[in-house]
Design a protein around this nucleic acid. Structure first.
Length: 596
RNA sequence: GGGGGUGUAGUUCAGUUUGGUUAGAACGCUUGCCUGUCACGCAAGAGGUCGCGAGUUCGAGUCUCGUCACUCCCGCCA
């Protein structure tokens, strides 16, 4: 095999040459996308990061090079020297940017031969995901994957430039840190020099960025890996990347301004798209009321409608008793869907059951405006009229009802709304619909552990006017937390933090975290808060989810170069692996994993 | 922890409902022919632990039980 020769210096990349370059002597380097051997003449599509150029080997031009070209196969790595020539008029390939020209090779260097790849390097070939992950280096040669990874770079570059221009300071925070209170399960790292003790990998740099505000850094950001040892989903990986920021002497408005500016720059850089600012805002309560979810998809309407008041005394006992017991009856009008078959309705009932709904009641409005429904007979004429008006029932519509505890009703019907929109094709796949969701509850009640729990995290500030309710009615306290939702997916969230140790202690008390526990787990933060803390707040964005939406992918794995499987393994490196006994001894660890 | 889906040639899949001859297709691969293709064409050929293990049966890719892997979802993820 020949080494890179002195005269083989790349002059162009593979999407660069045009008709204006004809007669230029060039050197290209890249991988063999495709070989077409016509016996006499051989065509090679040479591919690099930028694109593809056709190379021609013609024995009349160089007998020696043509002979050498016969052994070329897919994915060989080549250096080619030759002259750019025009293609015959009727041979121009309009589908390709470089289709007007080709390179007549007079020199060929085979840098590497390649085994036949496990799958072809083309977007249209559908290799299964496990094969793709096993040969990720091949998968990343595919234009779609390559473009996703480059788009991610384009995004982070735009984000860094924007935040730098806004006066933010990029500061690294430790990966080897200590376990945080509440929240997700931590990844633990044993400490060799402190036998029996463990670091935790950060679930987020939350406490450190607050400490940086207390240090006076004013505006901090970091594009940083975070770690959570929980079960995975299409939009969840054990290690993921956050765009993390924190600001001092600000309130919600300024943080949202900065975040919107950053998102707008990102969309401009990646998609050359101008977003309309500012983004709309909706309170948590309103989102739950109208959409049933705290991450409403605003690309379509079909809002939910509460009817508890209309059916509280109805003859349909299921509805009446739910209302009597503090539950809620809500409905959604699927316009024009009265054509749904019994089977389709059964499927939707199963769908709602996933979210704990015990049933799905329905009313079809027939063309003559009469009702077809298993529950219609239970309603009085007045109730029917009231429902008809409230739900804007028209011939051809079907109404779905869920009656359950408030939480279940909202979740099930909210998810059903999304599902109906998917089924009916109501979603504009090219739309980007943003909304802020504000004024989340500060805490909720954990039924299993019988105590209050912070919805966001325990350092989130309550709304000032709600502070007095902390002791009297904790569940009614709203927080200064906000999420940014895009197309029904939460892409970022943050809050104004508590900057007074007094208030912090009060909130911790409310959460049932006593002083001893608080001091043990994050006493350093409480002490720091007493050292002169500025009012501050921040936000963190999930870079992977943002890129997933920007790249129109269904899974964040397709915007991560080396993602993990659902069982958090790496198919390429086969991590995790069993350490040697010697390693374990050094770490003072006894393993429970035995040979089987 | 729970529910659903998938697993057959290098790859993507058909075949499994109703057990029965030599397990097929496409792409890829190999060889030969071909001087204008660009998803080249033509001809020939190689290629299989039907995920793995038990069981039922005269006989299992197909039925039963178990198990593993990948995947979607619920729980979980402040």
């Amino acid at each position: 095999m020949t080494d890179l020769q002195k005269d083989m210096n790349r002059t162009h990349h593979c999407s660069q040459l045009r008709a204006t370059d004809i007669d230029t002597q060039v050197t290209l380097m890249g991988w063999v996308q495709n070989r077409r051997d016509h016996g006499g003449v051989i065509f090679i599509d040479l591919r690099d990061k930028e694109g593809i150029t056709q190379i021609v080997f013609n024995p009349e031009n160089s007998k020696e090079t043509h002979a050498k070209a016969q052994e070329i196969r897919s994915e060989y790595v080549l250096g080619i020297t030759g002259k750019v020539i025009a293609r015959p008029d009727d041979m121009v390939n309009a589908k390709r940017e470089t289709g007007a020209i080709e390179v007549m090779a007079d020199g060929l260097c085979i840098f590497s031969r390649a085994k036949t790849p496990a799958f072809q390097i083309e977007d249209r070939i559908e290799a299964s995901e496990s094969i793709r992950l096993q040969y990720r280096y091949l998968d990343l040669r595919r234009p779609q994957m390559k473009n996703n990874i480059i788009a991610r770079h384009t995004a982070t570059t735009a984000i860094r430039n924007y935040l730098n221009d806004q006066g933010f300071v990029d500061i690294e925070t430790p990966f080897l840190t200590r376990s945080t209170p509440e929240g997700a399960r931590d990844y633990l790292v044993p400490s060799r020099v402190n036998p029996g003790e463990f670091y935790a990998l950060p679930q987020s740099p939350q406490l450190f960025k607050q400490l940086l505000m207390i240090s006076g850094f004013d505006k901090y950001y970091q594009i940083v890996k975070c770690f959570r040892d929980e079960d995975l989903r299409a939009d969840r990986q054990p290690e993921f990347t956050q765009i993390d920021m924190e600001l001092s002497f600000v309130d919600e408005t300024q943080i949202m301004d900065v975040a919107e500016g950053m998102i707008a720059k990102t969309f401009k850089a990646v998609l050359d798209m101008d977003l309309k600012l500012p983004f709309p805002q909706i309170t948590y309560d309103e989102a739950m009321d109208r959409f049933g979810l705290d991450r409403p998809d605003l690309r379509f309407g079909m809002e939910l409608c509460e009817v508890s008041d209309l059916v509280k005394d109805t003859g349909f006992k299921v509805f009446a008793s739910v209302v009597k017991n503090g539950g809620m009856v809500k409905a959604v009008n699927a316009k024009g869907c009265a054509t749904f078959s019994r089977k389709q309705i059964d499927e939707l009932t199963d769908f709602a059951a996933v979210y704990k709904a015990k049933g799905l009641a329905w009313i079809k409005i027939k063309e003559d405006a009469s009702w077809q429904s298993p529950i219609a007979k239970f309603f009085t004429d007045q109730e029917q009229d009231a429902l008809k008006q409230r739900l804007d029932m028209e011939p051809g519509d079907i109404i779905f009802f869920v009656a359950d505890q408030i939480k279940i009703t909202n979740e099930a019907l909210g998810q059903l709304r999304n599902e109906l929109a998917r089924r009916k094709g109501l979603i504009d796949e090219d739309a980007f619909s943003f909304t802020w969701v504000t004024e989340f509850p500060l805490m909720d009640y954990d039924e299993t552990e019988k105590r209050y729990q912070a919805l966001h995290h325990p350092f989130t500030a309550p709304l000032e006017e709600d502070v007095e309710k902390l002791s009297s009615d904790p569940l009614a306290v709203k927080s200064r937390a906000y999420d940014l939702v895009l197309n029904g997916i939460e892409i970022g969230g943050g809050s104004i933090r508590i900057h007074s140790s007094d208030l912090q202690e009060k909130v911790l008390e409310c959460l049932g975290i006593d002083q001893a526990e608080a001091n043990d787990k994050f006493g350093f933060l409480l002490e720091a808060l007493a050292a002169g803390a500025p009012p501050h707040g921040g936000i963190a964005f999930g870079l992977d989810r943002l890129m997933m939406i920007l790249c129109k992918e269904d899974s964040i794995r397709n915007v991560i170069a080396f993602p993990k499987t659902q069982k958090a393994t790496c198919m390429l490196t086969e991590a995790p692996s069993i350490p040697s006994t010697a390693q374990l001894q050094e770490l003072s660890i006894k393993t429970v994993k035995t040979q089987e």
